[in-house]
């Protein structure tokens, strides 16, 4: 359905490398700096994943929690995230996915949220606290506005559940590399390798791996297991966190980190 996803994954497959998908929280540490960061990272990103800051992000580790808090402190809200994405769309033509907690979607109005997402040029919406069983109304709105509903798959997702999720999921599957929260994986062990293999065997959708991807070795190992894309969030946000006093320096350091990561 979403052609942008298909185009990217076909291209990176041809280039025999996983698609690189950086994640940043919209408005972290403030609207203006955030837009600059997206600009600087855009040329290296095959796709972008953008987080809506939330007061209670229970799937996230300390790094992204702190990013959410910074963004909320600078008075970012759902409307401002949409307007930020509208500005990003002016210079970025590849896929954009958003990660948003369910209460923000519900309070905005489910229909209105997906309509707005579609208008702003968002390709995929992932709601980490809406599992398949609660997803019907969200998937229906996504399909209505031609936005891909993206789902997470974890090591606890058995093949039977996977099959059911694949009936509604679009774009790609977000594979959670470890049992835990974002930013916690530090190696890709055998369990993760076997997990990727199992899902690969059972899914036609491209697979993007996230949670704790921070080194070239992680990416190389994931590629060996057959992954189609990698999502890198906490590792990038940590650099921002360490250089909050100097946004230009943060930008430069993130650029260097990303260049080395995907070289």
């Amino acid at each position: 359905m979403s052609n942008r996803f298909e185009i990217v994954f076909q291209r990176t497959k041809k280039e025999v490398r996983p698609a690189f998908m950086p994640f940043l929280v919209a408005g972290d540490p403030d609207y203006k700096t955030s837009l600059e960061l997206f600009k600087s990272i855009a040329s290296k990103a095959d796709m972008l994943e953008i987080g809506f800051p939330y007061s209670d992000p229970l799937a996230d580790g300390p790094t992204i929690q702190a990013a959410d808090e910074r963004a909320l402190k600078s008075e970012i809200n759902t409307d401002k995230v949409f307007s930020l994405i509208k500005e990003i769309r002016k210079f970025y033509s590849h896929p954009i996915s958003v990660l948003v907690y369910v209460n923000l979607v519900y309070q905005y109005g489910i229909d209105k949220f997906y309509r707005q997402a579609s208008l702003m040029g968002i390709d995929g919406v992932l709601i980490p606290d809406v599992p398949l069983e609660e997803s019907q109304i969200f998937v229906a709105a996504a399909k209505k506005y031609k936005v891909s509903p993206v789902f997470m798959i974890t090591q606890t997702t058995n093949n039977e559940r996977l099959k059911k999720i694949l009936k509604v999921a679009e774009g790609y599957l977000y594979l959670v590399s470890v049992l835990g929260v974002t930013g916690t994986g530090n190696s890709l062990g055998k369990e993760t390798y076997d997990f990727i293999k199992r899902i690969k065997k059972n899914s036609k959708l491209p697979l993007a791996l996230g949670f704790g991807i921070s080194t070239r070795e992680h990416i190389a190992n994931a590629a060996k297991a057959g992954i189609d894309g990698v999502i890198v969030g906490s590792a990038i946000i940590k650099i921002l966190e360490a250089n909050l006093q100097n946004p230009d320096q943060a930008k430069n350091k993130i650029e260097t980190f990303v260049s080395e990561l995907i070289a």
Binding site: I110, D129, P131, L132, E133, E134, F151, M152, T154, V176
Partner: peptide
């Protein structure tokens, strides 16, 4: 908007399982 009515884990309109995928099997 009503999310879901009268199904397992709901008390009228309220309840449900809004958790990350990792927790669904447990």
């Amino acid at each position: 908007t009503v999310i879901k009515k009268q199904r397992k884990g709901y008390f009228g309109d309220f309840g449900g399982q809004f958790v990350p995928e990792t927790l669904m099997t447990p």
